[in-house]
Nucleic acid binder design. Structure first.
Length: 741
DNA sequence: CAGTGAGCGAGCTTCCGCTTGACTT
């Protein structure tokens, strides 16, 4: 035992050194025969990663996964001693004691432990906690820190042969972050229980997200749409027709506010003499986008596939853990929670090989590099396919529809990012129309792709740009005639509500939240009934707006994005040992605590003001019913409570089968919402789509629902499958989004 | 893909950030 340790110290890691000269995957036979009873224990965070690394390192190593944090603050109390330098009280996370024991036991059998948690702030803290709980049971065991940013045999070998020590300052930064979030969350939440309603929550991240959504809603509400008109004209040429848009009238941009104005303008342009006055060609280089980070993946999957952030992460997890593609389970993508666009040299080599074989003309001389974001912790690579040779087409039969669609966008984005740029040529034609009433200028532009470049691998990710558009066949000086004017009424559009895609984008830009928390943050806002989702849009509820306004009034500092930005700067200072973490926390805590106490004493409770009045009347006592929020969502209850205990589900529509109420219900298993007849089980009518209030089909009388797809946008459809009222065919095309499953 | 189904109103809740399976209260 002693001698072995001494040897290990001298050459750092003799076993790893042996392997660098031998085959990658198999230990040399000599070593295998002499195989020692004691191994080196490597601890990583993810089990999928553990399996891969174990394969690379061979039998002298055993690899275990911590599956995230094992040690943390208890859930049941604040557990921060504010009197004693904010010392946190750490305990074993509930449900993790068994795994922790296993790791301790494994460590006991090992000659050395290498802590290989992720190379970021949280990973450093995980390593620190592990070291403490392992050394308690194994006092003389050498425990070292290793770090790698990519899972390749070379990177792992390098890491193992260059162990280092835990960065205590980085651990302090994590501790400060953890303590700050606990103090904010566990002080503000109880204040809300007291003043508004039990079970509510507030926090540094979720409350900013809620604030953004609520402020945007105010903008949406206060926006007043304004009418305006556009004019297009059909022109006749020697060879055919084309349509162009009026871009100038009497020397300036046309501003047409009403139907009268547009008719006047068209009358003034009557009998105009039209000449092609200018043709301009512009060439544009279009570069591919960088490979996916988590936030980019969520945004693209939301916009292109209609996935929620949550669904994107669930499906990505399946691809990461592996799918049986006919030769056992294969992990199809790299780790899906990342803030980096970095690509390993190995993966770059493989994708360049693939491009070279399939699109030899579109392989750049050198690998294309993308800048890693400034705020990125860069612990993981970009999200990419593990093997580019598994094209979406090759493996589509082994995957579910959701899996293949998500895999396809990951694959396309990755391969495209290492191909040559595309080139387009845009031809813009200008027609001057001169008449007695004045001179108008029309314009039409068409775009042609002249070098396809990375466009060639985009199928699911293709847009209109990749296909190009027609250009009229005319030349300068050609005389044309107007066949017809096309005036069209429009209204100015207000700001758009946040969606999963845009809230994640905004949070990332503000540096709020992390790849692992974007989806859960949206979920918590939904779970608390602060926000509902309607046609992919996040709409705040009355409760959500009340909470947002209250926090905005009494704790403006905490829910200001600048708060997190300042926190991150101070954490950097802690990491560089320029400031001590308790000092940083104290500076925030003292005024904050004072405010919490003050608001707790002075603010009047808004309990009771949350019930919304309705027009429904109680069948038993005749008093009006009110809309309340209960444990399972909104419901109707008698305003005479507690004297009258009548309750009802909120009627959404009339059941077309029996005339009863259609109400929202949740499935037993996953709690997915559906809409069924309240007379169940006598009547078992159900619908997957939410009924539109008070809207019945003019053709058959069944209720209408709102559907949404890329092609039609939001549109009303009759729920009756036998009725064709506005009934759009659901295209089986892979690019159209399906209903959420 | 098919199939989906309580009762709620005072009583123990909550944060953010790592990571995946799963105690029986």
């Amino acid at each position: 035992m002693e001698t072995k340790q001494a040897a290990a110290k001298k050459t750092a890691h003799p076993k790893a050194a042996e392997k660098t000269s031998g085959a990658v995957k198999k230990a040399p036979k000599r070593a295998a025969k002499k195989s020692r009873t004691q191994k080196i224990l490597v601890i990583v965070e993810s089990p999928a990663k553990a399996a891969t690394i174990e394969k690379y390192l061979g039998k002298d190593y055993s690899v275990k996964a911590s599956m995230g944090h094992l040690i943390d603050l208890p859930k049941s109390r604040i557990a921060i001693d504010v009197e004693r330098n904010f010392e946190p009280e750490y305990i074993t996370v509930r449900g993790r004691a068994k795994l922790l024991k296993e790791i301790q036991g494994e460590a006991k059998k090992s000659e050395e432990v290498l802590l290989a948690s992720d190379n970021d702030r949280e990973g450093e803290a995980i390593a620190w906690h592990l070291r403490r709980v392992i050394s308690v049971k194994n006092q003389n065991l050498p425990i070292k820190r290793i770090a790698f940013n990519e899972i390749t045999p070379q990177a792992i070998r390098d890491a193992v042969s260059n162990p280092s020590v835990i960065d205590e300052y980085k651990v302090n930064a994590q501790k400060a972050r953890r303590v700050l979030d606990r103090l904010v969350g566990y002080n503000l939440s109880p204040l809300l229980w007291k003043k508004v309603k039990n079970g509510l929550s507030a926090g540094r991240v979720q409350s900013v997200a809620l604030r953004l959504i609520c402020e945007r809603e105010k903008e949406v509400e206060s926006f007043i749409p304004e009418e305006y008109w556009s004019v297009e004209a059909d022109f006749k040429t020697a060879k055919g027709h084309f349509r162009a848009q009026l871009v100038s009238w009497r020397g300036k941009k046309p501003e047409i506010k009403s139907e009268e104005e547009v008719e006047e303008l068209i009358a003034a342009m009557k009998d105009s003499v039209c000449v092609v006055s200018d043709i301009r060609e512009t060439e544009k280089t279009v570069r591919p986008r960088p490979p996916f980070t988590t936030s980019q993946l969520q945004q693209t999957a939301a916009n292109r596939l209609g996935f929620t952030s949550k669904k994107t992460m669930q499906v990505a997890q399946q691809l990461y853990e592996g799918v049986d593609i006919g030769q056992g389970r294969v992990g199809l993508i790299s780790y899906m929670r990342t803030d980096s666009v970095r690509i390993s040299q190995l993966a770059l080599g493989e994708v360049r090989d693939w491009i070279g074989k399939n699109y030899p003309g579109d392989l750049p001389d050198e690998a294309v590099e993308y800048a890693v974001g400034k705020k990125a912790q860069d612990a993981h690579e970009a999200i990419r396919p593990t093997y580019v040779t598994y094209t979406p087409d090759n493996i589509k039969d082994s995957l579910t529809r959701d899996q293949i669609r998500l895999y396809t966008i990951i694959w396309e984005r990755f391969v495209a990012c290492q191909m040559k740029a595309a080139k387009t040529k845009t031809i813009s034609v200008e027609i001057t129309a001169a008449a007695k009433g004045g001179e108008g200028v029309f314009r039409v532009a068409g775009t042609r792709v002249i070098e396809k470049g990375f466009y060639q691998v985009l199928k699911l990710l293709a847009t209109r740009d990749e296909k190009g558009s027609a250009v009229p066949q005319v030349k300068t000086g050609d005389k044309l005639s107007v066949e017809k004017f096309h005036p069209e009424q429009h209204f100015t559009q207000g700001p758009a509500r946040y969606t999963d895609a845009s809230i994640v984008k905004t949070l990332e830009e503000l540096g709020i939240g992390r790849p692992s928390t974007y989806a859960p943050t949206i979920s918590v806002l939904l779970d608390r009934y602060y926000v509902t989702r309607s046609n992919k849009q996040l709409v705040p509820t009355l409760l959500g707006r009340m909470i947002s306004d209250m926090l905005g009034e009494y704790f403006p500092h905490v829910i200001d994005p600048a708060f997190t930005a300042a926190m991150e700067n101070k954490l950097d200072e802690v990491e560089e040992n320029n400031i001590l973490w308790p000092d940083m926390i104290r500076e925030f805590w003292e005024p904050f605590k004072e405010r919490v106490d003050e608001v707790g004493k002075t603010l009047e409770s808004c309990k009771g003001t949350l019930d919304e009045p309705t027009d429904y009347v109680c069948e038993k006592c005749g008093k009006p019913l009110v809309k309340k929020l209960g444990r399972y969502g909104y419901f109707l209850a008698c305003s005479g409570f507690p004297d009258c205990k009548t309750t009802r589900s909120i009627p959404l529509a009339k059941c077309p089968r029996c005339g009863g109420d259609v109400v929202a219900r949740k499935t037993r298993g996953r709690g997915k919402e559906f809409y069924g007849c309240a007379n169940y089980p006598e009547c078992d009518f159900i619908s997957h789509y939410k009924p539109l209030v008070n809207q019945s089909c003019p053709k058959c009388g069944w209720f209408l629902v709102e559907k949404y797809d890329k092609k039609n946008g939001t549109h009303k459809v009759c729920i009756n499958p036998g009725c064709d009222y506005l009934h759009e065919e659901e295209a089986p095309d892979i690019t159209t989004e399906g209903a959420e499953s």
